[in-house]
Design a protein around this nucleic acid. Sequence first.
DNA 1: CAGTGGTCTAGACCACAAG
DNA 2: TTGTGGTCTAGACCACTGG
Lengths: 233, 233
Amino acid sequence: MTIYDTNSWQGIKSEVIRRINDRQWQPGDLIPSEVELSEQFGCARATVNRALQDLADAGVLDRRRKAGTRVALNPVRKATLEIPVIRKDAEARGGTYSFDLLSQQEFTPSANLQNKYRLDPNISLVGLYTLHRANLKPFAYEERWINLAVVPEITQADLTSISANEWLVNHTPLSRGEFGFSATNATKPEALLLQCDEGAALFTVNRVTWSGEAPITAVRLVYAPGYSMVSIV
Amino acid sequence: MTIYDTNSWQGIKSEVIRRINDRQWQPGDLIPSEVELSEQFGCARATVNRALQDLADAGVLDRRRKAGTRVALNPVRKATLEIPVIRKDAEARGGTYSFDLLSQQEFTPSANLQNKYRLDPNISLVGLYTLHRANLKPFAYEERWINLAVVPEITQADLTSISANEWLVNHTPLSRGEFGFSATNATKPEALLLQCDEGAALFTVNRVTWSGEAPITAVRLVYAPGYSMVSIV
DNA sequence: CAGTGGTCTAGACCACAAG
DNA sequence: TTGTGGTCTAGACCACTGG
């Protein structure tokens, strides 16, 4: 346990946490204003501000101008998932990473894709089917399409030596995305690829990545049985 | 798209992002120091600091004293999962929430639990088995134990009217935890409870919550088929 | 050692929203 | 209208760590 001075922002943060845990300040309660607290703690208001903002980010406090700062009624548990590049993930689980690019072809978006992602019918997409391995054993199976209208350069890349995943991460440094996590039963082809029984429960990630209004890529990733994604809060 | 002035920290943040996306600053590159940037932007160093710290938190920049600030080589994708109380989750999915407390009993930790969670063999735990429902249909099945040495007050609570989950959230406002997400095949009893086929792929969450060195509670939660946990980055 | 980020201060002005 | 948080400034000192 690290101890902080009470006129450091971390110290103020722990003190606030202590008061909440002690139930001096209960859920829904209004806590003193920044000015009052800075007087209590004998520090600058900016220091209190830093501490309270941090706690508000964490979902512990609710702050509104003029209305003041309250202890959150529904302390949302926020878990920050670090989603590593698959290669790192496989390596971290003690394996040597490799992958097979099973197939790659260009196509134009189906009506379904056009609607779902607001894609122009005339653009080209690349479809990629990849089996990721750790120590040569199947680790995850990936189905992906990439929007060539956004990243045409990828046609120049050798996607058998670097995975599309990594290429994209390094060439589109910042982007919005949506993740969906679910569980699906292995289909027969998936079972063959992942060397598991048909119907086995597979941890599944769906991801769409956007650059402004245009989708860059969408992925469906099914992990071999036993995979677990861990997060520390 | 919101536009910020370049001497606000948000403005500086977007400008830095722009330079990274333009590849003026490439992954691994050292970017100018805070002092240099504050001169370039005509603002105080603290403002630049705020912007760069934000980007470092997001995993876009790597910062080290004396070594300076670099564009991250492995831009970690961080997804912030908001993990709501089950009731809210069920309600957000358009249902009326209810639950059945199937069983509740006190016991002392098995050798296995003692080892895994460093539990004293003499303390008492409560085991709870709960079926959560949305619109009366099974939503998730929960197995949980709670450490009475840490929260003895819970024996006073009526856990048939408020779920243990919510009681704990409101009485242990801040705590560390670990989440694990995986997929499991429905066992026969789970299939009965969740009204699905045996073997169906179920999204599963394991959670352990700690208060200092002592575990407060551990939960295994299996969701009815079709559940998907969504996160926006 | 010296240069970088990390933090604190005292003061100021602004933006928002409750009354 | 007015009290609250949100932000910026100019300056200062500190903590870490690379050279």
